[in-house]
Each structure stands twice: as structure tokens, then as C-alpha cells.
């Protein structure tokens, strides 16, 4: 009994210490930033030395080889980044560390300094991000189309519509289930824009299911409920939901989905890998990467999953 009391006391102390540390870490965001900048300047000095050394020996070993890419699930889970990664790493010498989340969280990682470059798809949030000084520049470079998927028999008759807004109206009129991401992701933002264009406020209505989940889980839920949802094509084609749902509307003009890259501004976070970010952006817009991206998915799905923007070529 006595022994267990001592152990508990010890445990309590450890927890209290951890909690205190945590609170300190939270409250001193600005403090850690300034200390980070101090360490960064010394790092920069050493990295300058290292890079001059590297330049003489091998072209493909950058001073800071780790590149943290924060991207959305649609780019990572569709397999595009894992497909490009080995070639990028062989060409530039950088090592990619990819984290994927909804666009909201992906951008947040840029704000907290936990990424070097973003690859996301939500124009308004991206512009806000750049305008508040976190990003250097928004570089749109590829696109694909959102698609509306629904039950095989398409009870709302979406297939007869020509635009996404019309399709959403048809779904609302028929009262068929619509499953929304509801997670502030790029897809979710696009969906809300389409509802607005359709002049409908679906929030809280009976047939409108706010799933608060990633694309995969939302597709599963739409399949289980035999409802409609808005998705990017790549995730849908790589999800089992395609066995019980089908694309009822794709490639409408108002369903274009543009992906951009943003390097994190070294002025906000001096210790981010800006050289790596620039190398990434340069490589992604190169002739070689464009060809790889245009080929991706053709073998497996019979069509590319992403298209290069003309301006980026």
C-alpha cells in the first residue's frame, strides 16, 4: 500500500510537470519564434559553409535535405505525391516528409511553422494565408474536376443537369440524402460555394448530413446511406465506395479544382527550408514533372487524375 502511494505521488509529479511544460509551450508562441530565428541565423551560417562544400562534391546533397510538405488528402491519398516522390528526391537530393490533412489543417501547419511548402486547393484561404504574410506567393499549377457521386439509380436525376449548382438544386428538391465533409477542407469549401450559387442553405435540413470527416470516411458514409456527395475524382476512384456509388456529374464548368503551391515565408518562420520549398516548386513545374503528372492514373483508371494548368507549363 505504501509503495503504491509513493508511485502515485511520483506519477502525479510527472504529470504536473508535463502539464506545466505544455502550458508554457502554448503561451510562448512568439518567444519560441524569436529563439527559433536566433538558432536559424547560426544554422544559416553553417548551412552556407555546408552548401559551398556540397557544391564542390555532389550537386544533389542540399545543406538542409529535409523538406516538409503539408498537403491535402486528395493529393496524397490519390497516390500522386508518393508517385512523384522518388523522382523528385533523385533529381534534387531533398527528402520529402509528407503530411496530409484537410486543407484547413494543412494550411494551419504552414501558419504554425510546421511545414516548408504547402500543396493545397482552396483559393480564398490560400490568398488569405499569403496576404497575412505566412506564404511567399500562391502558385497555381494543376487542376482536376470535382465530381458528384450518388446511387446507381440516381433518384434525384442529377445526370440530367449541366452544372453543379443545378445538380445540388435537384438533390435538394428530391430530398435525397447529401453527405457533406463539414470539415473546412477544400472540398467542403467548394461544396458550400455551390450551395450558395444554387441559392440553398442546407445547414440543419433533414437530408443534409454533416459528416465532419475526411473524404474517404465521407464516401463510405454516402455509400452506406446511398446518398450523394461531392468528391475529388482521384479519391473516389481509389475508394471502395465506387462499388456502390457512381459518378453522376463530372467535369462541369463550376467544378474545376485548382491546386496551388505556396512556400512558407522565411520572414515569418526563418528556420523553414525555403531553398527546399523553392526547389520543390521549380521541380513540380518542370517539363519532367508535368509529363509525370499528366501520365498519372492513365494506366490504372484510363484517364489522368490531374491536369497541368496552361500558365504553369
Amino acid at each position: 500500500m505504501k509503495k503504491s502511494t509513493t508511485i502515485k505521488l511520483l506519477l502525479a509529479t510527472v504529470f504536473a510537470a508535463m502539464f506545466a511544460l505544455f502550458m508554457v509551450a502554448c503561451s510562448s508562441g512568439s518567444g519560441s519564434a524569436s529563439s527559433a530565428s536566433a538558432s536559424a541565423s547560426s544554422e544559416a551560417a553553417s548551412s552556407a559553409a555546408a552548401s559551398s562544400e556540397a557544391a564542390s562534391s555532389a550537386a544533389a546533397t542540399p545543406a538542409n535535405p529535409v523538406l516538409r510538405v503539408s498537403t491535402t488528402t486528395s493529393v496524397n491519398d490519390s497516390g500522386l505525391l508518393p508517385y512523384l516522390q522518388p523522382t523528385f528526391e533523385a533529381d534534387t537530393g531533398y527528402q520529402m516528409e509528407v503530411t496530409s490533412a484537410g486543407t484547413g489543417a494543412a494550411i494551419k501547419k504552414g501558419e504554425t511553422g510546421d511545414a516548408d511548402v504547402l500543396l493545397v486547393h482552396a483559393k480564398a484561404s490560400e490568398e488569405e494565408f499569403v496576404n497575412s504574410g505566412f506564404g511567399v506567393e500562391r502558385i497555381p499549377f494543376m487542376y482536376n474536376y470535382f465530381v458528384i457521386v450518388g446511387p446507381e439509380d440516381d433518384p434525384a436525376g442529377v445526370a440530367n443537369c449541366t452544372t453543379a449548382a443545378d445538380a445540388f438544386k435537384a438533390i435538394a428538391d428530391s430530398g435525397q440524402t447529401f453527405v457533406s465533409r463539414g470539415d473546412d477542407s477544400g472540398t467542403n469549401k467548394k461544396e458550400l460555394q455551390i450551395w450558395e450559387a444554387a441559392g440553398i442553405t442546407p445547414e440543419g435540413l433533414d437530408w443534409y448530413v454533416n459528416a465532419g470527416a475526411g473524404m474517404g470516411a465521407t464516401l463510405t458514409q454516402a455509400a452506406e446511406r446511398q446518398g450523394y456527395t461531392l468528391t475529388d475524382k482521384g479519391t473516389f476512384l481509389s475508394n471502395d465506395a465506387k462499388n456502390s456509388l457512381k459518378i453522376v456529374l463530372g467535369e462541369a464548368d463550376d467544378m474545376k479544382n485548382t491546386y496551388s503551391m505556396i512556400a512558407i515565408s522565411p520572414e515569418k518562420w526563418p528556420d523553414t527550408n525555403i531553398d527546399g520549398a523553392n526547389a520543390f516548386i521549380e521541380w513540380m513545374t518542370s517539363e519532367k514533372a508535368s509529363k509525370l503528372i499528366a501520365d498519372y492514373g492513365v494506366a490504372e483508371y484510363g484517364e489522368p487524375l490531374f491536369y497541368l494548368l496552361e500558365s504553369a507549363k
Partner: peptide
């Protein structure tokens, strides 16, 4: 959900 939305 809030974590996934970046509202840490």
C-alpha cells in the same frame, strides 16, 4: 474534427 480543421 477541430484538430483536422486546424483549430488546434
Amino acid at each position: 474534427l477541430e484538430t483536422n480543421m486546424g483549430h488546434f
